[in-house]
Amino acid sequence: MINIVLFGKPGAGKGTQAEFLKEKYNLTHLSTGDIFRYNIKNDTELGQLAKTYMDKGDLVPDEVTIQMLQSEVDKNPNSDGFLFDGFPRTLAQAAALDAFLESKNQSITATVALEADDNILVARLLERGKTSGRPDDQDEEKIRNRYDEYNQKTAPLMDYYKAQGKFHSVDGIGTIAEVTERLTNVFDKF
C-alpha cells in the first residue's frame, strides 16, 4: 500500500494532477476541501461542527479535520493506498496523520510538492477565477494572503518530511502532460 501526501500552493495543479495519479496508481483521492463540502452539504455531525467554526470565520480545529479524514480512510478499507490532497497542512496534522496510519500498520510512503513561482500561480488563479466563480480566485490580495498562510503553516512540513527521507519536489510549471510525466517519474519509484 502506498500513501502519498500531495501538496503545493493554491493553483499549483494538485487537483488536476490528483485525478491522473489516482487512476494510474489506483489510489483513493482524499481532498480535505471535498470532504468538508460533503460533510457540510450532507449535514453530518462533523459537518455541523465544522460549519459552526466556518460561520464565525474561524479555521476548523485540527481534531475536527482529522476526524473527518479518519472517517474517509475507514470508509475505504480495500484501497490500494491514499492520495492526501490538502492534508496535512500543519505539523500537528502531520503528526496526527502519522499516528493514525501507524494504528492501521501503515505510514506515509512519500510527500510530493508541486513547486511553482508565485507570480505564475497568481496569474493561473486569476484566470481560473474568471470561470470558477470562486471569489478567493478573483482577488490578487486574497491569493497572496493564501500563499503567506501556506508559507507559514504548510512549508514547515517540507522539513518534517525531509527529516523522514520522504520529501520530493516536482516542478509544477509546464503543460498538464509534462507535469504528470514528472510526477509519474517520482511515483514509479515507490
Score class of each variant (00 low, 15 high):
F87P: 00
R37L: 10
Q48F: 12
A123V: 10
F7W: 03
T28S: 12
R124G: 06
K166T: 05
A95M: 12
V5I: 14
L125T: 03
R134S: 07
T131W: 04
D55Q: 07
D137K: 02
Q17F: 07
D34V: 06
P156V: 09
V122T: 08
I40C: 04
K9S: 09
F36N: 00
D148T: 15
R144F: 11
L121R: 02
S107E: 10
N105Y: 06
T52V: 14
A163T: 11
T131P: 03
E45S: 15
D62W: 03
Q70D: 07
I108D: 00
N119C: 11
K24A: 14
I143K: 01
T28V: 15
D159M: 11
P10K: 01
R146M: 07
E72R: 04
H29T: 11
D159Q: 13
V186W: 03
A96E: 02
Y25R: 08
F100P: 02
L83H: 02
A163E: 14
G129Q: 04
F167A: 11
E178G: 04
V179Y: 01
F190W: 10
D74N: 12
G174Y: 05
K142Q: 13
M158L: 15
Y38P: 01
K104L: 08
T65V: 14
Y147T: 05
E181Y: 05
L6H: 00
T52D: 09
G11A: 09
Q67N: 14
K162L: 13
D98N: 11
R37C: 08
V5M: 01
T180Y: 09
I4R: 00
T32W: 00
T184A: 11
F167E: 06
L125G: 02
K41N: 15
S31H: 05
D62I: 08
E149Y: 05
G86R: 00
I4E: 01
I143V: 12
R89G: 05
L114N: 01
A18E: 02
P135V: 13
P156N: 07
L83M: 08
Q106V: 03
P156D: 06
Y25T: 06
E178T: 08
